[in-house]
Nucleic acid binder design. Structure first.
Lengths: 209, 209, 209, 209
DNA sequence: TATGAATGAGACTTCATTCAT
DNA sequence: CATGAATGAAGTCTCATTCAT
């Protein structure tokens, strides 16, 4: 199974989906502001426009909400990036494209990113593996493109170097969210993208050294 | 002032120092395990070996503990890295040295790092600026060395590129802690250091592109 | 606004009223016995027959209870006295009537009076003005009657003397509660009323001196 | 015994007296400001200029301080008033003199008065009788003078009326302290004294009615 | 299904009092 | 006699979760 099941008292699957997306939306708004621990379930229900009782019809415990949120955000990212990654471009161009649209996405979803990276550690042992797996899926997108680049001779990277590069790209995106307190006063997202893009491309380049 | 004052009811400065380092030690142990929010002040006091009353003789509120912990960890890093950074080496060698000892340090203090990066967001508006400043001080260490390298003609980097590079180096270190769930199964710290070192050095290198 | 708002988490206004009067009743009982400061919120909840959590659904903080109690007691007095004060009597008879029924009321609500006068000083800056205003409303009832008496030529009192007389009457009532340790062993309430009534009537009389 | 014994660990009686008057002075200052319950023993010790440990060498428990304070204030009043009461004047003049100097004293010691009347109810069962007795002693001063006045034919008052009058006088003084929130904006102490003096004198006068 | 009042464990924090130095 | 660090009981308040309606 790709997703961890979150038990609901309600049968109507459609309704579950509707309610849960309301929950997620409200939760993101609030977590952004005050973090997971300082947000109460009551607040989430209120923000979502229904009662605390109703909230608990769609989740079993507070932690479920954090999982739903994380899951949702990751899916958003994955879907968008897989879309880009399926473009019919030459591998090197694709790499550029996906990196820069990833950065753009991060800038767009800055708050969501922040929530995810700051609250992920609050996930229970039960949920964490699911979320980490999603992170690896994002990683895999870059790995695949990088592998193609290597296969097509653009770079000469070992397996491990490819993995490292993929992680690095991902983290460079996350940085823009979690270090925004420092970065935003120095760079626009375009500048940041350019500088990091060059850093990455040189960092995985062949010759040199 | 470099540090935020944390009020204590006790007068004996020596004792304050002793007790506070006991508090810090215990807090790190517990935060590591359960995070700041899930750790109770009672647990911290107990772990430190004294009563809850005594704990509150040395701090004013729970958040003080998080500040003390952050402050302590940053100081540890800064001191160690400033030591390294004052080595009498040629700039390029110094860069290598400081980066690799920084990575070693991160590996060593993995738990502390994790605590710091995961709980920093729980710091109050009051404490946060002090902690962010400390992060920038670490950043500055790398900036200085990079600037020297540029001045000595090893790289051709703009001001903004230097800053980006410094942040990147710092984050590559932090990654080892906060992505250890993925990285540790792929790399040893030495491998990780080598790969990232190469990535960095190429990333800031002159030619190529 | 005449009353300070006390926030409740509960929406049902009827229920709020019910619960709050339970709270007030319990609080009076306990404050009587041990005073505001020595009474715990837990005890109040228990006495009221619900849990501490429920108590806090109807108040925001302990001090709210004291305010509710004061407010309630004052209202009781005001309502009863305004009723009497609207009797269709000649002014002088009305004065006698209202004074003696006020004394009777004080005797009746001895405990409540005591609580109010002993704990009022524990009211926060936030609540105090509201309660003092209520005290002045009681005062005003006597002032009005006295003014009519003066207008009808029964007494010759200046504005300031009227105010003093009103305060004196009020305090003579309160005395019966807060000096009961001394007075009850000397007088019955009827005796006390008679003696003080004469004292008052002579005290504000015309001739003499 | 006139006074309740307050146990001390220290033998030197002189020292006990010195320290206790320091304690009383500090306590009055603080009680004035925040009341007995909100004042901590630590604060009292600090205000008095010695350590909490030392404080507890001279008292057994916090409540002792309240007793000492009450006892001290009453003594002040009694001493001053007995002085006045022993003047060689005709009874009626003496009554005027003692009443007006009592009112003056009350105005002078407004804060102490307030403390006493507001915190007395916090006295334990153990101390209360002693303090009430002191209040009765003050009462007795007026009773004695009034009795003389009656004996000398100035008024025609029964035993019970004398007692009531004495209580009334006392309470009129206290009022100036505990209703100062209302009275001070209407009267100066001289006005207040004059108005109440007339009220009292008429209130106990013979003829009329 | 939806509601929201009720619950109570448990969190943080204070402070009177003790006792070794 | 003086000190002040240590103690821990007890207080206020919060909030996730339940359940009758």
């Amino acid at each position: 199974m790709e997703k961890r099941a979150v038990k609901s008292m309600v049968k109507d699957e459609k309704l579950i989906e509707t309610r849960r997306s309301q929950i997620i939306k409200s939760a993101v708004t609030l977590f952004k502001e005050k973090g997971f621990h300082r947000t109460t379930t009551r607040e989430i229900a209120k923000e979502a426009g229904f009662s605390i009782g109703t909230l608990y019809e769609y989740i079993r415990e507070k932690e479920d909400i954090l999982y739903l949120v994380s899951d949702f955000i990751y899916d958003q990212f994955r879907v968008r990036m897989e879309e880009e990654a399926s473009s019919n471009l030459k591998s090197l161009d694709l790499l550029h494209l996906v990196i820069s649209s990833y950065f753009k996405l991060v800038d767009d979803k800055q708050d969501e990113m922040l929530v995810m990276y700051q609250e992920a550690k609050s996930l229970s042992k039960k949920s964490l593996p699911y979320v980490l797996k999603k992170e690896l899926q994002l990683c895999a997108i870059f790995e695949k493109i990088l592998t193609r680049c290597v296969e097509e001779g653009h770079f000469a990277l070992s397996e491990k170097e490819i993995k490292a590069a993929a992680h690095n790209i991902l983290v460079f995106g996350q940085m823009w969210a979690f270090r925004r307190w420092a970065l935003r006063s120095i760079y626009t997202i375009e500048e940041y993208t350019n500088i990091q893009m060059e850093f990455i491309m040189k960092g995985i380049s062949k010759n040199n050294k």
